[in-house]
Amino acid sequence: MSEITAAGPAIVPVTAAPTVRHFHHAPGEEHEHEPGEATLLGFWIYLMSDALIFATLFATFGVLRQNYAGGPAPRDIFDLSLVALNTGLLLVSSITFGFAMLAMDQAKVRAIQAWLVVTALFGASFVAIELYEFGHLIAEGATPQRSAFLSAFFTLVGTHGAHVTVGLVWIAVMLVQVGQRGLTGENKRRLMCLSLFWHFLDVIWIGVFTFVYLLGMIR
């Protein structure tokens, strides 16, 4: 793109025009509105399909939850206080992301960045504690290979953890994007998608802590 500007405005290729244009135009309401809305609905449909992936993993876990194969049961290996801490971290990260979105409404770039960093710190702590839990289980011999229950457990909880990790990468990318280009229409749209993604992961976690940890401890 730097080559295009160096060559002068007269010979800008037609194909590159849409990319170049948004650097010169202020993000107009009418201009940005329609494509952004389509993206949000599309992203929502993606989240719903992601929910179906989790549905199959929950179903698998539900079917295999008591197939211990003589190995450890939930009561032997789960530490509920650790899960409660993790749940709290993810819940707080949800509201801090909400504050980032409120800052976006008021176009406060510094506040958006600060809240995104806070959200990422809570998210990173969540992933770190989950990795500690996994490491602890594996060190105790409760590996995914041990029983069908543990295979299903690691697949379900690990898939959620992988999603949170991707969310952290996305937050980092958005910090760079907002830092370099400011609050453009595109960045607003991306932040809205990321917001949906982050809150969606918290909803999935409600299912995980209820059906995997809490109900597992009762049985």
Partner: peptide
């Protein structure tokens, strides 16, 4: 995608209790 501060805080309080 835009909530008000009030909906976020109400949501957070309710979730905290429900957790």
């Amino acid at each position: 995608s835009h909530g008000s501060r009030k909906t976020y805080l109400i949501g957070f309080a309710l979730s905290a209790i429900l957790t």
